[in-house]
Design a protein around this nucleic acid. Structure first.
Lengths: 146, 146
DNA sequence: GTAGATGCAAATCTTTTGCTCGCCC
DNA sequence: GGGCGAGCAAAAGATTTGCATCTAC
């Protein structure tokens, strides 16, 4: 996995430095969806000298090259993940946990929608916000009304 | 439309002030998807005395009440629109134009996906990034590779 | 050797907050 | 009248940038 990503980088003309390799490895090891600051905090544990601006610069670089993907939780921070098999996210409204899923039917629908509008799909962002069935949301203090 | 939104506000216990009414009207008049600063700049044309913090406070208030919706273009700024009929967005990759669409089939799929995972859908965010068919993307300078 | 990358510090941009004054009900 | 809202200024948080130094190729 890591070698694969590093190859993608060199193929894209991205120079591999110690910092970039560490950031890439950090992303691979992370099975959640860290924001830039969290990537930095995880990376700095392994290399004290890495800096936050470098993390930002590297994440932007990798995103522009299509090697990682920026995802958005509407929490004001950009989060990142390596581009893997196509998948989308279901976010648990109560605890913020992120579940991943894949659905071919969904992709077909997107294609046909875009097609009807005269477009072809080149990317998409899909997030389902959901609540576990069976858990009532009325017996607890709830600020936001969905 | 405006009276309708104002009613939603009073129903939600939101006091209607001159500033809030102006912000709501600004949102209704806007057929694009303005960010907070743009809402502010549009509103200030009509009332010199309105302030940016008030715009932010009002937008958050309206969003928490479910009267407007925050949408995200991955450009680092939150954008807003009144909650209208359910719809999603297709973003033109070349010029950033936002098209809206509705598709029942899509909603059914989301329901069944969530259902399979033991969840029920309480919200969703869907954006298709597309390119107009027939327009080549190879004959022009292109920085981002999608 | 040289173009490009890094670290540091500071700037920038978006959004939020403390406080005082003013206005809606 | 009293509480809630507004404006101002400043803080806070996320992200970017200028510049001198260092490094991958």
């Amino acid at each position: 996995m890591e070698a694969e990503l590093l190859k993608k980088c060199t193929d894209a003309g991205i120079r591999i430095t110690a910092q970039r390799a560490l950031i890439i490895e950090t992303l691979i090891v992370s099975d959640d969806h860290p924001d830039a600051d969290l990537v930095y905090r995880r990376a700095v544990e392994r290399d004290q000298s890495i800096s936050l601006p470098t993390v930002y610069r590297t994440l932007n670089l990798l995103e522009d090259a299509g090697i990682i993907k920026k995802i958005n939780m509407n929490d004001g921070k950009a989060r990142f993940e390596p581009v893997r098999k196509d998948h989308d996210h279901l976010i648990d409204a109560d605890n913020g946990h992120i579940h991943e899923f894949q659905n071919q039917e969904l992709k077909k629908i997107l294609d046909s929608i875009a097609n009807e509008m005269g477009y072809e799909v080149i990317d998409h962002r899909i997030e389902i916000v959901g609540r576990k069935r069976g858990e009532s949301n009325c017996d607890c203090i709830q600020i936001k009304v969905y």
